[in-house]
Design a protein around this nucleic acid. Sequence first.
RNA 1: GCGGAUGUGGUGAAGGGGUUAACACAACCGGCUGUGAACCGGUCAUUCGCGGGUUCAACUCCCGUCAUCCGCCCCA
Length: 433
Amino acid sequence: MGEMNPVKGMRDYLGEDMRLLRRIEETFLGVASLYGYEEIETPILESVELFRRGAGEGTDIVRKEMYELTDKGGRPLALRPELTAGIMRAIMTGKLHSLPDMPLRLSYFGPAFRYERPQLGRLREFHQFGVEAVGADSPALDAETIALLMTGFRLLGFQGLRILVNSLGDKESRDSYREALRDYYRPHLGEMCEDCQERFRLNPLRMLDCKVEGDKALAKGAPSLQDYLGEKSRARFEETLKILDGLGIPYEIDPGLVRGLDYYSETVFEVHLLSPSGKDYGALGGGGHYGGLLKELGGPDLPGVGFAIGAERVLALMKELGLGEEEAGAIEVAILPVGEDSLPYAQEVSYLVRGMGFSAETPLRAGKLSAQFRRAERKGARIALLLGEEEKEGRKVRLKDLRSEEQEDVPLSELEERLDRIFEEEEEHGHED
RNA sequence: GCGGAUGUGGUGAAGGGGUUAACACAACCGGCUGUGAACCGGUCAUUCGCGGGUUCAACUCCCGUCAUCCGCCCCA
């Protein structure tokens, strides 16, 4: 039957990739907590209905990208294609909206699933970090989430991110704009691409960033969303930009920026970064303000703002930018038995060393010393303990610092203290740069 | 969903119908029975994604299939 492959569009994480994925998760969750966000975890499986009403019936995500299944009780379920809807559901389930302190600030990291054709920067199972701030409506909160996102990327070592922002206005201005667009495009519809015919029906805003040449030219003459923004929306957007200016966060206004989920209104944004090799991993993250999402799902009428970033895209970029290089650090102390006879003593010492709180592998055989040294180096060990007959007799170890290449005999009774000192110094060193 | 490319060891890869599938790197063992290099010697694909066909003979040709990658669409 041959080899078992992972399911299409899904992958394993191991070695460097696993470490990076974890680092991305921990960095962003850590930054979120710096901003006062609390972590939340919700189920991967939710009802199909939740996503229909959350992301929107007409979106591609819901129409053709959901993994749907029916459980043994006949319930229509879906693997979550995004996490926001589930979090809104959790807010209602836990009645978090009746908590005294608004807004709620929630952060999350976890897998999401979309049935799409895999390609660069796109998996069928991918991981999202994100935040949701619910229960307050303020340009300052919009700006805060953008600032949070910037801080996270900065701590990971990123530079030169592009933040694209736009305002979709409130529901009324969007509705009237949508009609204006339809009026504009209607006479030309016959000459436009098939996708645009579809977009005309479902979401005319999408026609604006069609890649087909003829359609692109047409888009230039189209009415602008900005002209349809109500006075309140315009003021709100300007206030948001002013705050970003104040924080020193550079951004670009992109009037064509339209997000794929139905629930957004007012401020929306995306983060982009072109890789040095010119690869385009798509948006690293995106989000925005939403007005009626919670209400749409049957909850209270509370606004919110949030974003999600795609961990795999961030990971790929980190590797390309060389931000991913870090020591495996699997082993701190290498145990080197000298001769088969000293194997039991070496195993005993490895056990003691781990009891002292240092990582070490149990030696399984006593090979050539040079080979053992090579392995120690590969594993990133700082210290090697040579253990032969002589050491066994004297209940001591020959301790070699693999960095300075100095070595000395240390009685077992003093080993812990000795190791503590060495690794403490190392830590202090690490903090200097 | 549509279009294109590619599948030979742990990795990078040669091979163009003929039976031992190059070469390089990595790894492991030994030369050196207590010290990380270099050097030298050895080991490492009963098999070329999988299934079928053509042939005396297929990794090489044909068909199918699966997988991966890339573009479109869309998005994180």
